[in-house]
Design a protein around this nucleic acid. Sequence first.
RNA 1: GCCCCCGUAGCUCAACGGAUAGAGCACUAGCCUCCGGAGCUAGUGGUACAGGUUCGAUUCCUGUCGGGGGUACCA
Length: 557
Amino acid sequence: MLADFRSQLISIIEQSLNDYNPKEKYPTVDLEIPTDKQHGDFSCNIALKLAKSFRKPPVELASVLCGVIQKRIKVNRLNNKISNVEVKKPGFINFFLAAEAHYSILYQVFQEGEHYGCSHFGQGRKIQIEFVSANPTGPLSVAHARQAAVGDALTNILNGIGFDVKKEFYVNDEGNQINILGQSIQYRALEILGEAIEFPQEGYQGEYIKDIAKEFIDDHRIRNVSQLKAHPFSIFARYGVDYLLAVIKQELKDFGVHFDIWSHQSKIATPQAIKDVLAFLGEKGFLYEKDGALWFKSTDFGDDKDRVVEKSDGSYTYFTPDIVYHKNKFGRGFEKVINIWGPDHHGYIPRLRAAVEALGKDREALEILIVQLATIYREGKPISMSTRRGQYISLQEVIEEVGVDAARFFFLMRHIDAHLDFDLELAKKQTPENPVYYIQYAHARICSVIEKAQEAHLEPQQSGLTLLKQEEEVDLIKKIGLFPATLMVCYKQLDPFALVSYLQEIATYFHKFYDQHRVVDTDDLNLSKERLALIDATRIAIANGLRLLGVSVPKRM
RNA sequence: GCCCCCGUAGCUCAACGGAUAGAGCACUAGCCUCCGGAGCUAGUGGUACAGGUUCGAUUCCUGUCGGGGGUACCA
């Protein structure tokens, strides 16, 4: 509804400019929503932009335009929706919506219910988003956890505004790290059976490897070392991958993250597929030989240096199957492909972009989001992260300690490109300092009040509102109206953070209203019903927002 | 060396290029005969530095200084 007014106003301003001087060519009209409510519901800077070319002081030009605009508003019969248009200091033209326009925000909320905020903006365009994609060599870390929270929430938001997003987990089930995994399990198995050998230095030292080794022995009914040695090496690796992938899937499930597609490197980057891709790049002249290796001219596409695709020993680098994988992604008809990576991969961006361009795709078709690390704090001290020393804290432990809601919310509490401090003690607290509880509490409180009202046979009034005029009421209504725009900000930034911030604000506005005004009041039934409408709409906006973030929406706490 | 992210209140962080830079925490002082006090109100306090673009810069550009990460024929 707010969006409708906005576009209506923009077109009115455009018409007015044409009324003022039809011969002039004008820049696109911006209409922003001011942060300070004294500046109205919408604010236009067109006079400031045009002042120079019209050789008039901005305020003077704004006044003239303001007059033209007001005429236009009358001609277009919008004067019942717009209460005032005024010119302010440097040359802004500010628009104030009439109460009737505010009420129509609430009508829209009731009409759309759990779809409030959603739109068809994306027009069903297909997007693939790949995230987590952790190597199946250990349990998920908090870095993966943040990526999972971001990827999942972003997907919900993009789907909500009309895109068709598929979530994909790419399983790196081949390569060195998998060999090392197999080796580690084999060593631990030998150890269990009594053959003490020195554990390989690069091996995975976590306790979970011992568990896998034990299960391997049991599964294959192995009784002694010679029986174990009869098993070919590749079996250990495969066993480990299957085992750990099951662990990862369970951890993600516990975290409430579901993937649409699980793809495997071994199935996509087959030897033939790799050969085909290299042949394609070779024909285009993007490959050359040097020092016995085959190189990709990524510098042609802006990379710092060229990259090896086939090593001098004939094997491929990690990069090569990844080119195949990205060719595969686009081959499946996705208009846009989003990769969510940790900061350790950022140096990898230019070469992958280069590869995608070499494959003939647009630069914009590939979006790579780097989600910065989260540092977990306990009692004000950071918990250091080291997989090798087994000192790290896993996703599982975080969930067990603070719960899924707090974990997911906390991982989204900062812009994705900012480092995140995750305070376990704070996340655990069920007090107002904890932002998740603050928001959930607002929702539960509303539910409780509505229930109370029903006992007095009072229901929210969903049409013909006229009485909500108090400052706190109007502020809250406007905030509710900003929910759809907030989702658009998330889309533009490809970051769910704006929604997190919005929910904290709307909760604050609600609590402020609630503290000042009584909702259920049998002495004033009409006002009660309208206030019930206001808080019910608030409830819907909060619930929809929390749901998109993957955080539960409790009616009681 | 080169590349990326970040420098905003004592701390953690906000601010489509907009108007008087906002929250939370902490600290101080208040508010429950009443719908959930898990709440609300008030006070304190800030854009690392130097240029540039702009009517207007926390935001964009250049440089300096500081913090973090990356820079493999590893994955």
